[in-house]
């Protein structure tokens, strides 16, 4: 039985999530918390296996909660559950120590598998979140050739380097095939490269993809 701590300031959301979790049969919501302070207290006081924490809560915001929890109870995996779909939140959360990140909208489909995955010692990230993390790492220092590229261009670069087709990329990022081609052309021009093979080499050299 996986014991879960559920921290969200909205009781109806908590109720919904609780039913999602308990429907599985091998998980239970051990404790709930309505704000950050309470969440920390409950996590410390109870033998919970996984903490599911909303990012925006009154009193203390989610990031702060993650920070404190990873400091005082590092073995407890935390899944960030949020309304925010902006990738920037992902980066902050992961760097604060969260092991998983899902939006509330995708909770019904993903929460359970996310809990399982982090409880098993893994991470749970959406594809876009993973890419953004990679980009952040690659751009770690100033003066990188990636500086002249926009985020979307970096994403397309990465996808192309991984060998995805234009159509696959278009579907993945909800853009037209023609737009993907435009990005490809812009990349070649900006980076002064000739073809997709060059792009792959470049992406590897910048640490965007594994060799």
């Amino acid at each position: 039985m996986i014991k879960v701590l559920l921290a969200d300031d909205h009781s109806i959301v908590r109720a919904g999530l609780r039913s999602l979790i308990e429907d599985t049969g091998d998980m239970e919501v051990l404790v709930e918390a309505a704000d950050g302070r309470e969440a920390i207290k409950q996590a410390m006081d109870n033998p919970v296996d996984v903490a599911v924490v909303d990012l925006s809560m009154p009193g203390m915001d989610g990031l702060e909660v993650i920070n404190r929890l990873t400091a005082s109870k590092p073995e407890l995996p935390i899944i960030v559950l949020t309304m925010h779909e902006e990738e920037q939140y992902v980066v902050r959360s992961i760097s604060a120590g969260a092991k998983g990140y899902i939006t509330k909208r995708s909770a019904p489909e993903q929460l359970v598998s996310a809990i399982r995955q982090v409880h098993g010692g893994g991470r749970y990230l959406s594809q876009e979140a993973a890419e953004l993390l990679a980009l952040r790492v690659a751009r770690g220092e100033r003066g990188s050739p990636l500086d002249s590229l926009s985020n979307r261009e970096v994403q397309v670069l990465r996808a192309l380097a991984l060998g995805q087709t234009n159509r696959e990329i278009a579907e993945a990022y909800h853009i037209s095939v023609k737009t993907v081609d435009t990005y490809r052309f812009r990349l070649l021009k900006k980076l002064n490269l000739r073809n997709n093979a060059d792009l792959s080499r470049f992406a590897i050299s910048q640490g965007l993809v594994e060799p």
Binding site: H84, E86, D147, S150, N151, E153, I175
Partner: peptide
């Protein structure tokens, strides 16, 4: 919300990439 939660840099980063997504104009921040 990012402006308050994450600060100016992240908010602008999000906004510029959102801008690019919406308009198709390459936006480097």
């Amino acid at each position: 919300p990012a402006l308050e939660d994450l600060g100016l840099v992240d908010a602008l980063e999000w906004h510029t990439s959102d801008f690019e997504r919406r308009t198709g104009i390459a936006c480097v921040f």
